[in-house]
Design a protein around this nucleic acid. Structure first.
Length: 541
DNA sequence: TGATGCTTTT
């Protein structure tokens, strides 16, 4: 009882002292101290005491011990120990125990073995609300968002279950965020309102994140403002949301405000702040934040912070300095860093460094065709036609290993998600969509200043075919369908599986002015708000 | 007398 009291009050040191002074330890005293460590996330001590307990002999292994030790394994992602415990619990018919089963599926999904987790889940004869919420969280953590939503529906249909708890709901909202499912996300929000969890920081964080990832940054901000006691994660979520939406001024304001509210920024905060500087080309500010991070807040920059700084410098044209930073930093340069460097060598006409960057990229990601195209475009910008030819030849030679993920965009209309692949022909209304596309092409060329640019088409085919492929990029089809289906004044929200290309970007700008429509495109990197011929990213992405 | 679950990152 004393051990339990001390650990629940947060003093595991006192709990351990009591435990150590006991002249005789029972199974329960061991279980209590092990669970104390497991809950604290101190897997070292939990596992150590577990082994000691086994060595001391005549302590039978029970469901209590197994579930606690599994909890420790989960934070350590120790699959090997977990598998031994799994076998043990099957042999001793403990695997049907709710606590053991739930802990098992948790450790499997946290370690990335979500299918094993699922198998444990399906095999459990008795499931508690914790079992359901653990499974939901596991699916979300492994990016199986649709499966998570299906599970939630299943849970709600099961009688005698308290499904709508903080744990399940925050996971489900995060699944909606991952899918950018605006309509479903709002439905879950309404469940939140009914249950009264709105002020919970976990729920609020996932809601703010969900709205931001659906492109509804204003809804995200409104929600954020209404939370009374904001924790660090909630501030971080809001700041990263603003960064992705290119609201760099607001990022800086919130960065100050969170400190006025008495919270210290952490590594995550600085990633968002630095990435905002990169997006907007703010060198001076980027340098200042990097300095503040190390000198004022005593945080040691990780590889992601360096990646942001490389981006900050190279986008501003300081490619040489970016390169020096990559050589000096205590990490190996990553593909995104070389990519950022190569991209800005193209813009700023530095062929020499572009060759270095491309050489490294070809080694790290041999299957990425975009890198070859980028190098070729750099040569083209410097009118070095031999380079263009040799890079194109290299690309052709390696055609077999190139992984070109097919472009895919989707848009929600009423209660349905419409998906478009590049060159799509299967949509039931494809003929109307293509007619609308022809109309828009004419209009934007005539009144919107749009000029197709086949330089962005990565496939190695002749010019006429290139323009054809370019015209049928998935986001162009999606925006046509959006215009046909959504009433005037309703923004068109498009999600995309790749980065938006330069040609589609200028097309969207043009459509927004010609049609007087707000268009929001989420690509893999960030958001683009098109309005009146402009984009929120200021053509800087 | 003891056990399992949630949000943010280039």
């Amino acid at each position: 009882m004393l051990i339990n009291m001390y650990s629940k009050c947060g003093s595991e040191v006192s709990a351990r002292k009591v435990f150590d002074r006991m002249t005789e330890r029972t199974l329960v005293s061991y279980n209590t101290i092990i669970s104390a460590y497991a809950q604290k996330g101190d897997e070292e001590n939990a596992l150590f005491l577990f082994v000691q307990m086994r060595r001391e002999g005549n302590n039978p292994l029970t469901e209590f011990t197994v579930s606690s030790v599994l909890c420790a394994c989960a934070s350590k992602c120790d699959v090997l120990t977990s598998k031994q415990l799994h076998c043990f619990s099957i042999k001793n018919s403990m695997d049907e125990n709710v606590f053991v089963g739930t802990a098992l599926l948790d450790v499997y999904s946290k370690s990335g073995f979500v299918h094993d987790a699922s198998r444990v889940f399906e095999g459990m004869p008795e499931k508690s609300d914790v079992t359901w919420s653990s499974m939901a969280a596991g699916l979300v953590q492994n990016k199986l968002y649709e499966e998570a939503l299906v599970l939630y529906t299943r849970a709600r249909a099961t009688t005698g279950l308290e499904t709508d708890n903080k744990f399940t709901i925050s996971s489900i909202i995060s699944a909606c965020a991952g899918l950018a499912a605006f309509i479903e996300g709002r439905q879950v929000h309404s469940v939140v309102c009914k249950t009264g969890f709105e002020s919970n920081n976990f729920i609020a964080s996932s809601l703010v994140d969900m709205y931001a990832k659906c492109g509804a940054i204003k809804d995200a901000f409104r929600l954020f403002q209404n939370i009374q006691d904001k924790n660090l994660v909630l501030w971080n979520v809001m700041i990263s949301a603003l960064a992705k939406h290119s609201r760099s001024l607001e990022v800086m304001v919130l960065f100050e405000k969170m400190q006025q509210a008495g919270l210290e920024p952490d590594e995550v905060t600085y990633i968002s702040v630095l990435s905002a500087c990169g997006h907007m080309g703010l060198v001076k500010e980027g340098r200042t934040y990097f300095y503040l991070m190390t000198e004022l807040h005593h945080l040691s920059p990780n590889v992601l912070h360096y990646s942001c700084m490389v981006d900050v410098l190279s986008r501003a044209g300081l490619v040489r300095e970016a390169y020096e930073l990559m050589k000096d930093m205590p990490f190996d340069p990553t593909a995104p860093m070389w990519g950022s460097l190569l991209g800005s060598c193209r813009v700023h006409g530095n062929v020499e460094l572009a060759e270095v960057a491309a050489g490294n990229l070809f080694e790290i990601e041999p299957g990425n065709a975009a890198n070859y195209v980028m190098l070729s475009n750099t040569y083209a910008a410097g009118r070095q036609w031999e380079g263009v030819a040799s890079t194109r030849k290299l690309l052709k030679e390696n055609d077999g290993v190139m992984k070109k993920e097919r472009g895919k965009s989707w848009v929600e209309i009423k209660d349905k998600v419409h998906t478009f692949m590049a060159g799509e022909r299967k949509h039931p209304r494809i003929m109307e969509i293509l007619l609308e596309l022809d109309r828009l092409m004419e209009e934007t060329k005539k009144r919107g200043g749009y000029k197709p640019d086949a330089g962005y088409e990565l496939h190695d085919v002749e010019q006429g075919k290139k323009l054809e492929l370019l015209k049928h990029h998935s986001e162009k089809l999606a925006v046509c369908f959006g215009l046909m289906s959504l009433p005037e004044g309703i923004p068109i929200r498009i999600m995309k599986n790749l980065r938006i290309c330069g040609d589609c970007h200028s097309f969207m700008k043009s459509v927004s002015s010609v049609e007087g429509r707000e268009i929001i495109v989420r690509d893999t990197n960030r958001f683009h708000h098109f309005w009146n011929g402009h984009c929120s990213c200021n053509d800087f992405w």
